[in-house]
Write a protein that binds this DNA or RNA. Structure first.
Lengths: 177, 177
DNA sequence: ACTGTTATATATCGATACTATATATATCGT
DNA sequence: ACGATATATATAGTATCGATATATAACAGT
């Protein structure tokens, strides 16, 4: 799924600037299942504009650079629907931490423990920012994607907390310290 | 983590050709937490050879093209240890299917159901190929990474099976058919 | 026996995406 | 006052991938 399609998808949530679209992928609703960078978002918005799939208006700001607000057009929505009609590619997970755990025998034990604790904390943080706010007012399909994300993070956290001894050895377990 | 480091990591499991390294990322031990393509593996092996981090010997085959077998060198192992000493980047998950679920209102219901069923099946398949063979003979850190992968897939499968109505509506639930 | 598909091998090019950098001003923490 | 971060835009250089190319074996279907 290319970045132009992702931008169209992001704009279905409401008008946004390039910077705001980036935030949707970094910390917002898309952050748990896709990414996009400034290096691809700005060029994509330019091409979408040329193709008439988005429209743009500039908004001046006091003491700050002007903001370019983009909106999806009707032909943009048609193009999005067409893309969503295709078969999705397989999921891709890239986890440097898991590569490190897999190659743990090539790491210093203290270093491995630091990486493990940081990774566990980052998963707690991700879970925490998905547990609020309350999502009972969300449409069902949004509850679905959010719930699936939580299930992922919770399962990983539970497994890591219960099995840290497999990676770090017995003396690092739980509250033996 | 760049592809050269991934190739060094792959070669710690034993000598391999470019094609075999690709298979490790496609169907093998790394497939659940990282990817690499021919387009990056072959150039990476070339550069690793130039830098003395791997060595290579050609193996002729009957009726098939020659095979280039690569081995990690001592300086390759040193370089790998150094890379593993750095802080890993955050995990990146790219899931076109989840983007589609999130944007479900822009999809035809029949199409959404097909995507959902295909995605669920692909997760069952991934889980199945992680449940065999028995891993009790694996070193603990390998049991850890495999177990974490299983926990991920199992949690996703359970959530999807229990909550398909949120995405597809009541009439599509379980065995109401 | 023949044909199409898949597997086993190598490799590279063009397209896409990302990181780093650039510019500009506000806000925040020390 | 100063450094870090946030809010904004944008692009060049770099990395990665998908498509393509070449070659032969093995397999499945007819």
């Amino acid at each position: 799924m290319d970045v132009k399609t992702l931008c169209l998808g992001a704009l279905t949530l409401g008008d946004a600037s390039g910077y705001e679209i980036k935030k949707m992928f970094e910390d917002g609703p898309f952050s748990h299942f896709h990414q996009a960078s400034f290096g691809s978002i700005y060029p994509a918005l330019g091409k979408l504009g040329e193709a008439g799939l988005v429209s743009m208006r500039e908004q001046s700001q006091d003491g700050r650079p002007d903001k370019k607000m983009y909106s999806i057009t009707e032909s943009g929505e048609v193009a999005l629907r067409r893309k969503l009609g295709k078969t999705p590619a397989d999921d891709r997970i890239r986890s440097e931490a898991l590569v490190m755990f897999f190659l743990a025998e090539y790491m210093q034990p203290e270093r491995l423990e630091k990486v493990f604790d940081g990774y566990l904390k980052s998963y707690h943080d991700k879970l925490n920012c998905m547990c609020e706010p309350d999502d009972s007012t969300l449409p069902p399909h949004r509850q679905f994607t959010r719930g699936l994300g939580r299930a992922f993070y919770q399962a990983a956290i539970d497994f890591m907390e219960e099995n840290r001894h497999l990676l770090l050895g017995e003396e690092h377990s739980g509250d033996a310290k």
